[in-house]
Write a protein that binds this DNA or RNA. Structure first.
Lengths: 336, 336
DNA sequence: TTGTACGCGTTATCAA
DNA sequence: TTGATAACGCGTACAA
């Protein structure tokens, strides 16, 4: 079933059918009704390939997700999808490995699909610096800031990772903790990891607390197992911390298990705070204290910004979304 | 950059370029090398729209994921993607709501993208019965069995949900439990929910144990919160069960929290066993006992079957993948 | 082994 | 307000 068939059936020409389908002006009400009815009746579905071949531009929006194991990205995709579905743009979601190069992947996808815009879920500056210039459509980097990157078609929406991490550590210090260990991300290959690390340093130096990256910090991948292993390593090298900050909830969960396996109780012996605010956290025993990123706000802002860039040729912007530190059950005041 | 440009550049015709690009025979080694080099140099990328328009079939494989909140589907998508990436087929992942109609969605997508094949992650018989006849390419339903469905282009790969659920309850009974409550899925709208419910009934009747669906069963959605709420409800109506089977790990996690909030300890007061085998489970405190579905096996088998159907026009088959009951720390023998 | 020419379904231009 | 027709980039008869 093509628009040709539709034309034949209704007695109109293909041009008129196309105009109706695309809500173009200069169509009589009669023709519009007649054609719409035929569309309804025949279950006609437009051939996107032909449409896009002709238009030299897809009508689609692309989402490149870096790392499937990041549960927060799952919620983010869900929220983005729900928001984009209010528009007419089809959404394509493409998953790549946590260690893959998201920018190169996007370059390929651009040539193949010519999307109207791209949403990057996760990404790292080095990759953008190296190859982003090859990408033409407007893009939004979600969950990392791109404010330091010199691209006029790249916006970003993120939590202020550095400050949020600082607040997390601050909260531990306010509870009376002085010996704090950190299960962090890779500082060299992950912006997020680096920023949150810097937040820890900020807090400790502001409070004149010793923090030795060699001994008190372990940078690994964002997974349960890595959180577990890193904590074991910290315990082996540095037995006496009373609080632990894991820069992702998944790591915090691994950390809690590792502490437990070493005979330490949470929060009685060691307080643990995570980062992300996964829904899961509030169902754990103990409920996980965490820095909650606003997934809804991130999704909403990033889609809005991208649409504004696409439809109104809006300027690129770099926004920050609010976060909240939740003290739940995995942290408690330190008492000597 | 099109194949025309490539042809001009190399001095060959578009047909030869096309043949090289598609690894067709009847091309001289010299032409092949020359053209491949030009491709490399120019960074040429084929226009998928034109290709697919021409071929009347995309080269792509489609994955329709039903419900993003199901963490197991995340791992499944990851495993599927990694397996498909060994081939040349592009993979499209489409997420729909847990309550949406996956078959109707696939019908639309088929018309739009004409995929070579479809993988359904989750789905329900009623939807397939009603509209699957409209779908032509080979499909595989993953995680639910379609062996009862009369479609020759529909295969399935699943855990034997009924039997696995029975084994889970059996294991509880073997531990000495006699009063068992079940946090289940919606029996009417979810095949998985119904099958696992039947497994519970099988086990109880085999062991001559009372099981009153009215009082001992609560069927809800697959989420932390629903697991929590269902458990609260069961507790309100039936205070004396000593073991609880949640038909999904996410529900089990919600259940454990609910028990805890009601002053009950796991496993001392109530044993809890889940279903799915999420990686998360073995990092919880207590480690979650569960029925582990083999995500890798499901991904591998379903992709293999689909490829066989696509490439060799293979027959549709219905396979079952092994599962394992893990007794970890959330279950223990019942002692009066 | 290679090249020419046509058509896939759509949009857009232009003339009617 | 309409319709005929020329592209879009590709694969593939068919001819050479």
């Amino acid at each position: 079933m093509t628009i040709k068939d539709l034309a034949k059936e209704t007695g109109y020409g293909v041009a008129t059918v196309s105009r109706v389908l695309n809500n173009h002006p200069n169509v009589s009400e009669k023709a519009r009704r007649c054609i719409l009815e035929a569309v309804e009746k025949s279950g006609f579905q437009i051939n996107e390939n032909a449409k896009q071949l002709k238009q030299q531009k897809a009508t689609s929006i692309l989402v490149v997700v870096k790392g499937t194991s990041n549960e927060m990205f799952g919620s983010l995709v869900e929220a983005i999808q729900s928001r984009v579905s209010e528009t007419d743009y089809p959404l394509f979601v493409d998953y790549i490995d946590e260690d893959a190069n998201e920018v190169l992947r996007a370059v390929t996808l651009c040539r193949e699909k010519k999307p109207l815009g791209i949403l990057f879920l996760g990404g790292n500056s080095q990759n953008f610096l190296a190859d982003f210039e090859k990408i033409e459509p407007p893009c939004v980097l979600v969950s990392n800031s791109a404010s330091g990157l010199p691209f006029k078609n790249l916006s970003s929406v993120a939590t202020d990772d550095r400050f949020a991490a600082k607040c997390a550590v601050d909260s531990l210090i306010e509870l009376g903790h002085r010996k704090i260990a950190v299960v962090g991300g890779d500082r060299e290959n992950s912006d997020t990891g680096r920023l949150r690390f810097e937040g820890c340093v900020d807090s400790c130096s502001e409070h004149k607390i010793d923090f030795d990256p060699e001994k008190d910090y372990c940078g690994v991948r964002f997974s349960y197992q890595d959180g577990y292993d890193a904590t074991k390593k910290l315990l082996a090298e540095n037995r006496d911390f009373t609080a632990l900050f894991a820069v992702a909830d998944v790591m915090a969960i691994g950390a809690i298990r590792a502490l437990r396996d070493s005979g330490l109780r949470v929060p009685e012996d060691v307080s643990v705070i995570g980062f992300d605010g996964l829904r899961l956290g509030s169902f754990l025993v103990p409920k996980l204290s965490t820095v909650e990123q606003s997934v809804e706000a991130m999704a909403e802002r990033s889609v809005d910004i991208l649409l504004r860039c696409i439809e109104k040729n809006g300027p690129s912007v770099h926004e920050t979304v609010p976060f909240r530190v939740h003290q739940r059950e995995s942290t408690k005041p330190f008492k000597q």
